[in-house]
Amino acid sequence: MHIVRQLPAVFSLLLSCMLATLALAGDAPTGKPILTVTGQIDETNQNASFVFDKAMLKQLPQYSFTTGTPWHPEKHRFTGPLLRDVLQRVGASGDNIQAIALNDYKVDIPKVDSEKFDMIIALLMDDEPMSVRNKGPLFVLYPFDLQRESQSQIYYNRAIWQLKALHIE
C-alpha cells in the first residue's frame, strides 16, 4: 500500500525526465549541420559548440528586408533570423564575432553591430534558398537600405557570404 501512494510521485518524476530529454533533443540538429557556433557561449548541443541545421535556424523568429548590396546589381529581399537572436539562443557573451565562410575566409564583426543594426543571417533571397554559387547557403547581411549608416565600406567588409561558423571571443 505504501508503494501505491508513491506511484504518482514516481510517475511525475519519470514524466519530467522524459520531457527534459525531449526538450534537449529538440535542440540537436536532425538535418545536415549548416552553422556551428563556438567560443564564449553558454548553450551547447554538440561537444563544446552549438550546431544548427536549417530547420533550427527557421525555428527562430524570421526577419526580412529588401536591400541593395555591392554584390548584386539589383535589390533583393533577404530573410533569416536576426544575428542577435542567434547569439542570444546560444548565450553568447563575448564582444567579437569571428564569422567564417566555407572557404575559411574570416571576418571580425563587433557584437555591438548585432545590437545596433537589424543584421540577419539570410537563409533566403527572394523567398528562395541561396545556393553556394549565389552566396549561400547563409549570408550575414546588414540592412544597407533601411539603416543607411551601414552603407559604408566598413560594414560591407563585415558582411560575409557562404557562412559556415561563428566563433565568439
Rank of each mutant, 00 (worst) to 15 (best):
G68Q: 12
G68A: 15
T69W: 04
P70S: 02
W71E: 14
W71Q: 03
H72I: 12
E74A: 14
E74W: 10
K75R: 08
K75W: 08
H76A: 00
R77W: 12
F78R: 02
F78L: 01
F78M: 05
T79Y: 07
T79E: 03
G80K: 06
L82D: 06
L82C: 04
L82N: 02
L83N: 07
L83E: 05
D85W: 12
L87S: 10
L87P: 05
R89A: 15
V90R: 09
G91C: 03
A92E: 15
S93F: 10
S93K: 14
I97T: 13
Q98R: 15
Q98F: 06
A101C: 05
L102E: 09
L102N: 00
D104Q: 13
I109S: 04
I109F: 03
P110W: 12
K111H: 14
V112K: 14
D113V: 00
K116S: 10
F117I: 05
D118G: 11
M119D: 01
M119V: 08
M119G: 08
I120V: 12
I121L: 15
I121S: 07
A122S: 06
L123K: 01
M125H: 06
M125Q: 11
D126T: 00
D126F: 00
D127C: 08
S131W: 09
V132Y: 13
V132Q: 09
V132I: 14
K135P: 05
K135F: 02
G136T: 11
L138H: 09
F139I: 01
V140A: 15
Y142Q: 06
F144M: 14
D145T: 09
L146F: 13
L146W: 07
L146C: 04
Q147R: 04
R148E: 14
E149K: 12
E149A: 10
E149H: 12
E149N: 08
S150M: 11
S150E: 03
S150T: 02
Q151E: 13
Q151S: 09
S152Q: 04
S152L: 05
